[in-house]
């Protein structure tokens, strides 16, 4: 069966990405994780049919794909809001008051930890260490990082996301607006950011914001 026949509902750039991913590894099976991100990008979350498609692409059974997908926290089996807000509550962030940030985000987003707001705008989760401890407490929006977030800034972030409703979320922009202490000097700004609650890595869900360098 041709690749396109397995994933006819995927956009053609994503079909092309899938094709490249299957070639990027010595064995097809290795492409299962990146393909799962694409399936999730396509369907908003990881659906049974998405896993079945990835199984067909990689020559696995759907049960094997599910075994892999369910091992990792970033493959979301349930519907995810437009903005996935991940509040780190691991030790360094905890010491710097992350629990209060989480509470503030829950209040403002109308989504309790582990749930999605009724209007589908936000999903909120607490997460383990996201590697920003020098800028604790840290928060991610669609995995784009903001360091040094206070409860007030956390609320402001939610309001901004709701009102400005950016199609692409950029880490530098959010850091500037809502962040504080950084783990290190970030250097020049990036024009790329996330278009969906999957990692905004070149092959997956990243895009450049128009009109910026």
């Amino acid at each position: 069966m041709t690749l396109a026949a397995v994933i006819p509902d995927w956009t053609s750039p994503n079909q092309e990405r899938a094709r490249k991913l299957l070639d990027a590894y010595p064995e097809r099976r290795s492409a299962v994780m990146p393909l799962l991100y694409l399936a999730q990008l396509e369907h908003g979350h990881l659906t049974d049919s998405g896993m079945t498609q990835v199984a067909e692409l990689t020559g696995l059974t759907p049960a094997q794909v599910q075994a892999v997908a369910s091992f990792y926290t970033m493959y979301k089996r349930d519907h995810v809001g437009k903005y996935l807000i991940s509040v780190c509550t691991s030790i360094s962030c905890f010491l710097m008051g992350s629990d209060e940030v989480l509470t503030a985000v829950e209040e403002e987003s109308d989504a309790l930890d582990g749930t999605t707001s009724a209007d589908g705008t936000f999903s909120v989760e607490h997460v383990e260490c996201i590697g920003a401890c020098g800028g604790a407490p840290a928060v991610q929006v669609n995995y784009e990082l903001i360091e040094g977030v206070t409860p007030e800034k956390g609320k402001a972030l939610c309001q901004w996301l709701r009102d400005a409703a950016p199609e692409v979320v950029l880490t530098d922009e959010m850091q500037e607006l809502f962040g504080g202490v950084r783990s290190f000097d970030w250097g020049s700004k990036e024009a790329e950011g996330a278009v969906a609650p999957v990692p905004a890595f070149g092959p997956y869900g990243s895009a450049k914001r128009e009109g910026r360098s």
Binding site: L60, T61, A63, Q64, Q66, A67, S70, F71
Partner: peptide, 10 residues
């Protein structure tokens, strides 16, 4: 060779 039952979750 029938991998139809698997671990799920971690």
């Amino acid at each position: 060779g029938d991998p139809l039952i698997e671990f799920v979750g971690r």
